Amino acid sequence: MKTALITGGNRGIGRAIAEGLASDHRVVIGVRDPEAGQTAAREMGCEAVPLDLTQPESFELALAEIGGVDVLVNNAGVLIDSNLINDPEGFETSMQVMVRAPYHLIRLCMPHMAQQGWGRIVNLSSGWGAFAEGLEGPGAYGLAKAALNALTHALPRDLPEGIKVNAMCPGWVATRMGGSSAPLTPEQGADTALWLARLPDDGPTGGFFRRRAPIPW
Rank of each mutant, 00 (worst) to 15 (best):
N166M: 14
S82A: 15
G162Q: 12
R210H: 15
M95V: 13
A147S: 12
Q188D: 10
G134H: 02
D201T: 11
V97M: 06
S125R: 10
P183R: 04
P160G: 08
P200L: 05
D202C: 11
R157P: 01
P102R: 01
P138A: 13
H112L: 03
L108I: 00
K164N: 10
D202K: 02
M113R: 09
N86I: 00
S94D: 03
P102Q: 01
G171R: 08
M113N: 07
G119W: 03
A144L: 03
W172V: 02
I163Y: 14
L194R: 15
D87V: 06
E161D: 15
F131A: 14
F209S: 06
S181Q: 13
G179R: 01
G117M: 05
Q115H: 15
W118H: 11
V97T: 06
Y141G: 01
S180G: 12
E89M: 13
P204V: 12
R107K: 15
D191Y: 13
R210M: 14
W195V: 10
A182D: 03
L84C: 13
R176Q: 15
A150L: 13
G127Y: 03
N149S: 00
A167P: 10
M177S: 05
G129R: 04
D191I: 05
M177C: 02
S125A: 02
L143H: 13
E92P: 02
R100C: 00
K164C: 14
S181W: 03
G90D: 11
G203Y: 09
G119K: 10
R100K: 11
G203L: 10
T192W: 09
W172F: 05
W172Y: 04
D202I: 12
W195R: 07
A174K: 11
L155M: 15
D81W: 13
T205M: 10
S181P: 01
F91H: 07
P102W: 01
D202M: 04
M110I: 09
L148Y: 04
V165P: 02
R210L: 06
M177I: 13
W118G: 03
G137W: 06
A150P: 00
D191E: 15
P183D: 01
P170F: 12
M110S: 12
W195N: 07
W128I: 06
G90E: 11
N123I: 04
A132P: 06
R107L: 08
L84S: 10
V122P: 03
C169M: 07
L79Y: 15
A101Y: 00
P111E: 06
E136S: 15
E133L: 11
K164Y: 06
A190L: 12
A140L: 04
P102M: 00
M168R: 04
A147Y: 01
S180T: 14
D81A: 14
I85M: 14
L159C: 06
I80Q: 07
T192E: 01
R157K: 14
F209G: 05
N83R: 14
L159E: 06
W128E: 09
L199F: 11
R120H: 11
L184E: 04
L84N: 14
W195Q: 09
L159T: 05
C109M: 05
R120P: 10
G206H: 08
D191N: 14
Q116G: 05
L194E: 07
Y141R: 05
W195M: 05
I163T: 09
A144P: 04
P111T: 06
I121W: 04
G178K: 09
L151N: 04
D202S: 10
Y103C: 00
S180H: 12
A130C: 14
